[in-house]
Design a binder for these strands. Structure first.
Lengths: 141, 141
DNA sequence: CCTACATCCTCTAGCGACTAGAGGAGCAAG
DNA sequence: CTTGCTCCTCTAGTCGCTAGAGGATGTAGG
């Protein structure tokens, strides 16, 4: 079951869009599956697991190139997992720095929106703060 | 002072790269400045302030289209600031949801890296967790 | 005046990771 | 046999730049 299914079903089963599956094949992230006589792609359970793996990794923000490496590691499980560790660790620190940056953006945006007098633009903090950047990018607040 | 300067100086003064300034002109985010006899662009203080405004807004993650609207509001300050407010509010909620997502990614990545036995790939949690997505996308952990 | 060298100009193509759409073929059900 | 869905390939567009080619202009020193 879930063997020799067409692309639409593989898409439904994996959560990866049809066009994206074809794109992954095109860039060589997945290999080209066999075809029916009518030239339609046929996927089996392993293919769908790969797609799920890819989707999960993409959801976690891994780049295609990193996923390429991770898939390769999955295929050759007798290697050291140092590479996989390094990739995940790099991703973690990326996520952490993004969080830090977004938190400071959040503070600044909230500050911008501290304008209870919803009047005209010339009294509005949003435009004002954007115009007076000097006072904002410094970590003095 | 800072009037009739060439693009390189406008770039240095605003922190927006030369190529990016030309790109902004091309897409109509800023208007085409006058030129010298030798066909070089000349920027004045107002232009540089616009570039700073844009840069600050970009740093805060506003999209070009949003910035277009914000610049327009800045030029017509007799309008209601509701639009500016809405844009900033939308940006804030975007930032907040990104933070939330990244925080849960962080947790999942940390869980992936809880593998102290740095052995071979077949014992490695990184690959394993990516392969067994079912247990991860559910909010049960 | 000549020569370096920096800066400027336009134009085109590339990035990442898809997404959308045109135009056509295959296939299952009624 | 026709309707309507899925599938095929191919191309171009998205966003916000960035890089590079190939050439013109401007400035400082010898």
């Amino acid at each position: 079951m879930l063997s020799d299914v067409p692309i639409g079903e593989a898409s439904r089963a994996s959560g990866v869009k049809v066009a994206t599956i074809r794109y992954y094949e095109q860039i060589g992230l997945i290999s080209a599956p066999p075809r029916t006589e009518g030239n339609r792609r046929l996927y089996d359970r392993r293919d769908i697991e790969r797609l799920l793996f890819i989707r999960h990794a993409r959801d976690l923000g891994f780049e295609i190139d990193a996923i390429r490496t991770l898939l390769d590691l999955q295929d050759n499980p007798d290697q050291s997992c140092a590479t996989a560790d390094a990739i995940a660790r790099a991703r973690l620190s990326d996520v952490e720095s993004r969080i830090a940056k977004l938190l400071s953006l959040k503070v600044e945006l909230q500050r911008m929106l501290e304008c209870t007098a919803h009047g005209r633009v010339d009294q509005c903090r949003v435009i004002e703060v954007l115009g007076h950047h000097e006072e904002c990018m410094h970590p003095t607040h």
